[in-house]
């Protein structure tokens, strides 16, 4: 009888590895949506749903990278600053230097990825703890972002750039939302069905076991930080389109939002369990919650209290469920 129970849990776990540990958050999201549907007549509409999608693009793209980092038991505190740096590089190259977007965007993403490479090498080659290495990178990249224009914002992107974030093609998706959805799908497939994705679970589960099993832990670690920074840069492109301007003070404390989304989605901070499926739900919970609280005209101070409470609730509910 016991074996049966274990077996069933095992099957469920193995059939839906990307949702493993995320069933709680999923239920939470559904309950939240039901509540908001009845609490305000403004919530349940296509328009509002598309608004929510618009609003989570930046966080969503960033959180996918953060999930991979946390999955291997790491942390990346620099994503908010890297995002700002990528935005400033984009603004400088396109508006100030006059390069076309087709060159400026790849270069900005390259600069972002480079930051991840530095962080990854600090962590693997010089054994700097991930927390410290990315804390340092957070400060360095923020400073660099400010230096490009001496703290000034840059405006004057081509008109179509902002349209990417505003025009809903086919009355449905903006290009920025489409970018997020592509990142979600590629991330999910990679994590579940690619050799490189499964390796991350092994490293997060126990790095020494993974190393002794012949997995190149160092290379995978560097790669994960590069990808995370690249995605932070990509979220910067999305934000630049959304705001039609870039400023070096963007993205302050976004790393904490991304970490919160990952954790709410059921990925353990110690690594090895969870995944991008859960993170998508975590991002949606944060997005729907903020949207709903605005729609309910909850006072801004009360919103902070509620969002904090939800994080606590999500994580303790998950811990409690596991213990049972």
């Amino acid at each position: 009888m016991v074996a049966d129970v274990k077996e069933r849990r095992g099957v469920a776990g193995i059939a839906l590895p990307s949702l493993r540990g995320a069933t709680g958050p999923l239920i939470g999201l559904i309950v939240l949506c039901l509540f908001l549907t009845f609490a305000t007549d403004k919530f349940l509409s296509v328009r509002n749903f598309l608004n929510v999608l618009d609003q989570i693009t930046v966080l969503g793209v960033m959180a996918v990278g953060m999930t991979m980092v946390i999955l291997i038991g790491g942390i990346d505190l620099a994503v908010g600053s890297v995002m700002a740096l990528a935005m400033m590089v984009l603004g400088y190259l396109n508006v100030v230097a006059g390069l076309p977007m087709g060159i400026a965007i790849p270069l900005a993403l390259f600069v972002a990825a480079l930051n991840g490479l530095v962080a990854g090498l600090l962590i693997t080659r010089f054994n700097v703890p991930a927390f410290i290495a990315t804390l340092a990178m957070m400060s360095i990249t923020r400073g660099l972002a400010n230096m490009i224009t001496d703290g000034q914002q840059i405006i004057g992107f081509p008109a179509w750039f902002n349209m990417m974030a505003i025009v809903r093609f086919g009355g449905f998706l903006t290009l920025t939302v489409a970018v997020m959805i592509v990142v979600f799908i590629v991330g999910l497939l990679y994590q579940r069905y690619r050799h490189g994705g499964r390796v991350l679970y092994a490293i997060g589960g126990n790095a020494e076991v993974a190393r002794l099993a012949g997995i190149n832990v160092q290379r995978a670690t560097v790669l994960v930080y590069v990808v995370c920074s690249f995605l932070a840069g990509l979220s910067g492109m999305v934000l630049a389109a959304r705001l039609d301007s870039v400023q070096p003070s963007s993205g302050v404390s976004y790393e904490l939002d991304a970490i919160a989304a990952v954790v709410i989605g059921g990925t353990s901070l110690s690594g090895g369990t969870g995944g991008i499926g859960g993170t998508i739900i975590g991002v949606l919970i944060i997005g729907v919650l903020r949207n709903g609280l605005n729609l309910l005209s909850v006072s801004p101070f009360m919103q902070q209290v509620i969002i904090g409470a939800v994080i606590v609730l999500a994580v303790t509910a998950e811990t409690y469920r596991k213990r049972k």
Binding site: K42, S45, R47, N48, N51, D54, Q55, V58, L239, R242, L243, S245, Q247, S249, S250, G251, V252, R290, N291, N294, L295, S297, S299, P300, F301, Q303
Partner: peptide, 21 residues
Amino acid sequence: VVDAKNDTNTQVSQVQDLMTQ
């Protein structure tokens, strides 16, 4: 009232929500 906590991105989202209301 919506409070952006000094973040432009947050403010854009909040304004979208205001329009919904």
